[in-house]
Amino acid sequence: MDAKKISILLKRDEGTKLDFKLKIDILLESGKKELAKDVCAIANSRGGRGYIVIGVEDKTKRVVGINVDEFMEEQFQQIISSRCEPPIPISLDFVIYKSKRLAIITIYDGGQKPYQLRENGAFYIRRGSTTDTMRKDELISCLQENLSLNIETMPLINSDINSLDLNIVNKYFLNKGILINDDNRLGFMDNAGITFVERDYNKRVVTLGGLLVFSQINSIYIPHNMIKIVNKVNNKIEEVIIVQGSLLDMLDRVEELFKGIFPINYPIVAVHEAVKNAILYRDYTMFYKEIEIAINYNSVSVISPGNLLFSTKINAHNYSKRNMWIYDKLIALDDKKRFVKSGKGFAFISKAFIKYGKVIFVDTKEDNSFKVIFPGIKNFI
Rank of each mutant, 00 (worst) to 15 (best):
A3D: 05
I6F: 00
R12I: 09
L22A: 06
L22W: 11
K23S: 12
D25A: 08
L27C: 13
G31S: 11
I42E: 01
R46W: 15
G47N: 08
G48D: 05
G48S: 04
K61W: 00
R62P: 12
D69F: 11
D69C: 00
D69H: 03
F71M: 04
M72K: 15
E74L: 14
P87Q: 04
I88Q: 00
S91G: 06
F94D: 00
Y97F: 03
A103P: 00
T106L: 01
I107V: 02
D109A: 08
P114A: 06
P114Q: 01
G121T: 01
A122V: 15
A122C: 08
M134I: 04
I140S: 08
L143R: 14
L147H: 13
L147M: 14
L149G: 06
I151V: 07
T153S: 02
N158I: 07
I161V: 14
L164K: 02
L166T: 11
I168R: 10
L174A: 07
L174V: 13
N184T: 12
A192F: 07
A192V: 02
G193M: 00
I194P: 01
V197T: 06
R199F: 07
N202P: 13
K203Y: 11
G209K: 01
G210H: 03
I220Q: 15
V233S: 05
N234Y: 11
N235L: 13
I242M: 12
G245S: 06
L247F: 13
L248I: 09
E255I: 12
E255C: 11
I264K: 14
V269F: 14
H272V: 09
A278N: 02
Y288W: 14
S299W: 11
S299A: 09
N307T: 14
L308K: 05
K313H: 12
N315W: 08
Y327P: 11
L333P: 10
F339T: 07
V340Q: 11
K344T: 15
S350H: 10
V359R: 09
I360P: 03
F370Y: 03
V372A: 12
I373S: 03
P375F: 07
K378Y: 09
N379H: 14
N379P: 10
F380Y: 07
I381E: 13
